[in-house]
Design a protein around this nucleic acid. Structure first.
Lengths: 337, 337
DNA sequence: CTTGGCACTCGGGAACACAGAGTGCCAGGG
DNA sequence: CCCTGGCACTCTGTGTTCCCGAGTGCCAAG
């Protein structure tokens, strides 16, 4: 049903529409692309593409605009991820160069990605799943209150204030700290739950209530809260795109952590590029936007995801190239630190 | 030159314009406010106000709109900060209730403020100036690299990765940690520089190069970097206001830490409400927006600032009330933890 | 000093016409 | 069988004109 030429026409429509932001007609296509056929022929092909639901005309006598389905076909079969230019690669390297802590890496990454793609960038903090515990610190703040600081080998620092069920003396805090560090130092996060479960036995009975409180917070912090944090940047790019409609919805979605999480989404094929186009994505306020996301990680396994959000009529090959490249570089940085 | 009635007219114009968002004419004023005079009289007053530069008419035959100068007069002399309703107070309390670490307090505060005012909220992290050092932790990451974690009594945790000039053994790290904690524990941040300066004498010569590196990072982190962090929320509220023009500029400004800093601004009279109206504010992209800011702190001294940014035609009394209330509550929370 | 009256101005919406882009269809040609 | 040129048709967007109404400034009278 869709022969090669029809596909070429679709590709041309997408490319022209992305660059001009105006419905594209048969004559313009014949002029700008070397399709080797006349406008009339192109019109026939366009009619077929419209029957298939790949393109759509806003009004009877206007050019055609790709539909979400059309973009999907384009992304899946008609385009190739475009590698970054040398200048862009160098920009990434210098931008992320230097010794950085995790916060800084994430902050810089999200800005870099926004700047590179001219869309809104979204970066999820690396999951702790593959990390190991580097250090546990307990700092007394008041009689029944301590601050718990957890440091992982990826440089992430988690802090929590903990209210204790009873007064605890400083030397008992020290003891607890020593026991915790002995047990958890170097422990993979995946193994934390079982390690923690075995701990109370090694403590004196009087320490157990306090220890139980602290341990439950450790578990909660490391295992449950570990994927919540997400940042974004480049909201100004939304205003630049002629996004008059729905801009409010988009901004609202961006401020909802939960929505952001679902946007980046979980994929089966890890570390591969995911593209969600318009209505494909799970949040109603975000029709009209597409998400290009990728997993990144320091080793073979994906730690977290990052991506960008922009209008459906974005330049997919370029955007995908930028997202993939940034994901890889960040992975390298994380692996190296 | 401006008698009481003229001021009343100006007040009425501001109030009407803020609520309707349309230029307000003499007849509407006479109808909606009990000024006790006829439209013709009001017209005369309006002419005087326009001569004074307090109001302005978009075109010859439209109503009047307050100028920045008019808003300024309104804020300074014609309005009173409006206290929050009971429901709003309760909302603040429940929103900020519970034991929270600093990150959480700031995050919740900025969201609360955005929700309460329906503007963009901006919160600066508490300055460390008045804090004391609670704990210093040094964690080896690699042969010539350690992570430095600084914990203050306000619950703030600062982390930095430090590259060392030479390899350092674990026991020397432990020793350094002990010395640092002995010297700095409980030390007010203001005194950190002199304390740090005296330290090298108490170390063996071989430790000094490494110690010097670490100490310089401590200084930099605590003293220089301590006020950089700022967060904002509620950008979606910008889209709601009919901000078609300049929205991009505003969003860009919001993502510039430096601009945000200057927006909140330093005031002479601490902890008092600051209002910057339209062209009064230091950033060109933000004409058309006003900033209402206040200092907040846990004691008598201001730790940092927070505020909101919205269109010049915002409801100043209500907004000022909300900002002041939130600033006070956050101060209480910080004092209590 | 205030008030009612009055002529004047100007922006914005409705009605209208028109040019241009783009289409679908059809008959002829390779 | 597919491609092509021609042609009539259908729209949208734009520019023009026109008119209404809100609002003003000024003036003379109370």
């Amino acid at each position: 049903m869709l022969d090669d030429r029809k596909l070429a026409v679709l590709r041309a429509i997408v490319e022209d529409y992305v660059s001009t932001n105006e419905p594209v007609g048969s004559k313009a296509l014949a002029d700008r692309h070397n399709l080797g056929v006349s406008p009339a022929t192109i019109r026939n092909d366009m009619a077929a593409l419209e029957d298939g639901g790949y393109i759509h005309q806003p009004h009877t006598s206007a050019g055609r605009v790709p539909t979400d389905k059309g973009y999907r076909l384009f992304v899946d079969r008609l385009s190739q991820v475009k590698p970054l230019s040398g200048a862009e690669r160098r920009a990434i390297e210098t931008f992320l160069a230097g010794t950085l802590d995790l916060d800084e890496i994430v902050t810089r990454t999200v800005r870099l990605l926004a700047q590179l793609t001219r869309h809104v960038a979204v970066v999820q903090y690396p999951s702790l799943t593959r990390s190991t515990v580097r250090h546990v610190e307990i700092v007394p703040l008041a009689e029944t209150r301590v601050m718990l600081v957890l440091i992982t080998n990826t440089g992430r620092v988690e802090q929590r204030v903990v209210d204790l069920p009873e007064v605890i003396a400083d030397d008992r805090v020290s003891h607890l700290r020593a026991v915790l560090n002995a047990a958890l130092d170097g422990c993979g996060l995946a193994k934390v739950p079982e390690t923690v479960a075995a701990l109370p036995e090694r403590l004196s009975p009087e320490d157990r209530p306090v220890a139980a409180t602290i341990l439950s917070v450790i578990l909660e912090t490391l295992v449950e809260r570990h994927e919540e944090k997400i940042v974004f940047a480049g909201a100004a790019n939304l205003a630049a795109a002629d996004f008059t409609i729905g801009l409010r919805d988009v901004l609202e979605a961006l401020e909802e952590q939960v929505v952001l999480m679902r946007l980046l989404g979980e994929t089966d094929d890890l570390s591969e590029l995911t593209v969600r186009i318009g209505s494909e994505n799970p949040y109603t306020g975000l029709r009209g936007t597409s998400i290009v996301a990728a997993g990144y990680g320091s080793g073979d396994k994906e730690l977290a995801r990052l991506g960008v959000l922009g209008p459906t009529r974005m330049d997919y090959p370029v955007t995908m190239g930028a997202v993939r490249a940034v994901a890889r570089y960040v992975g390298q940085i994380l692996a190296g630190s």
